[in-house]
Design a protein around this nucleic acid. Sequence first.
DNA 1: GCAAAAGTGTTCGAGCTACACCCATGC
DNA 2: GCATGGGTGTAGCTCGAACACTTTTGC
Lengths: 254, 254
Amino acid sequence: MEGDSIHKYKRGVINNFVSVDCVIFGFDFNRLNVLLVDRVLIDESTGEEIVNDLTLTGNHIYENEDLDEAAARILFDLTGLEDIYLKQFKAFGSPTRISREKDKIWLKASGRNPEDRIVTVGYYSLLDIDQVTLQWKGRDVRWTPVAEVTDLGFDHVDILNEALKELRKDLIREPIGFELLPEKFTLSHLQRVYEVILGVNLDKRNFRKKVARMKYLRQLDEKQVGVAHKPARLYTFDKDTYEATRRELLDFAI
Amino acid sequence: MEGDSIHKYKRGVINNFVSVDCVIFGFDFNRLNVLLVDRVLIDESTGEEIVNDLTLTGNHIYENEDLDEAAARILFDLTGLEDIYLKQFKAFGSPTRISREKDKIWLKASGRNPEDRIVTVGYYSLLDIDQVTLQWKGRDVRWTPVAEVTDLGFDHVDILNEALKELRKDLIREPIGFELLPEKFTLSHLQRVYEVILGVNLDKRNFRKKVARMKYLRQLDEKQVGVAHKPARLYTFDKDTYEATRRELLDFAI
DNA sequence: GCAAAAGTGTTCGAGCTACACCCATGC
DNA sequence: GCATGGGTGTAGCTCGAACACTTTTGC
């Protein structure tokens, strides 16, 4: 996997002034989760933990690499996945982004100058939670329910919150919910995606009537197997149908 | 005005790696326009024009300045206006953003290294076209109909197109159309904003029924004066009512 | 046979679409 | 008095909201 990555993605001279941070969302049918990496720094002499918290996954860009490429590279390094839903949502450039002591200590220990001004570009990603390799540059990676995230390194709580806002907006307007599910999914699972992320309860019958109108959600001749209840029909997203039937200008709301 | 600007906005050490570009939209009841600045370079010895085209307005950020501040500063320098609708819409970071010969010549003449990698953050702005001072750093500034823009310096055509896409999306979803109009406006003018930007024809009666439902568009006890037809009632946007009555989750569309 | 989730129809009201004529003003 | 845009209502249809019961499977 790492070998592929080295060939597939450009590596080159690091740009020290611009980075990309990825907010990677996964869904476990009960909660929305975000992929975070452990940030641990131990004092060599005393054995004391100086830093021990979590961050998003991010990286400086390479000089020969576009922003979208950098985000795809980070996502690939972290998950081994490609062709994943990935969207740039906001650039963060406050001059005081890095002001907490532990962030400065961490940067110094990583051979960086904590006084450097770094502008970071945020991407969020949606993927099927069951496909991920939880390893990144020797650091532990873990899924954490978004609702339980309280503090993160750097300004990553801000970045996560902005990603969430954008995700909620996009989820309402564009068909992306199933990006968090396996390729074949049930309508109940899809409904859960909307309920959990938007924090609402939806009526099952009304939801299904709505789906029936979306021709691009295609019913398959397959059912769930091995479940202790009436097995549900499986659906899939049909991209061609979506492209063909999407109405460019829906209603507008002033 | 310039004096104010120097006091109001931070000036400091320039960050050479990140810039902000502003796509400033104005509306003249027939067309959507964008504010562009002339880029002219004349060979001192021969008197020959080496470069003569147009660009968006942009600038490097200062080290002590946030991205939003930089955008507001640029907008202020260019228009003398503050508290104007301004929205970050996308970061542009292709390593080949600056590859055309005339862009390199221009940068060299401005004392920059054209091989430097610069990531730029795009903002778009909506304002009343009649309030603008058309002067910027000694360069001529002009309103140009968006439909007539064919080529611009650097990658500014890409930036403009992305801004337009974002504007159209936002216009449908959020009440921002009147940002392009004077504080008091008629419903016909508002309707024109939607028609021109979205490229559609709207029914006058249906449009007005819709507006009647939006309590935040408040009818004033004032009418147009000096027009050669029945004078129209004036409306204004009531921000408090908007904040109070906005429904956070409208309908969702899968 | 029981626990668990799948699947299905109707009624009501709000809002979208389409469509045509009279009104107030300046010149 | 005429040219110009302002201002208004109705009918049909689609879609959203609310609401309860039967079906199929594993155990």
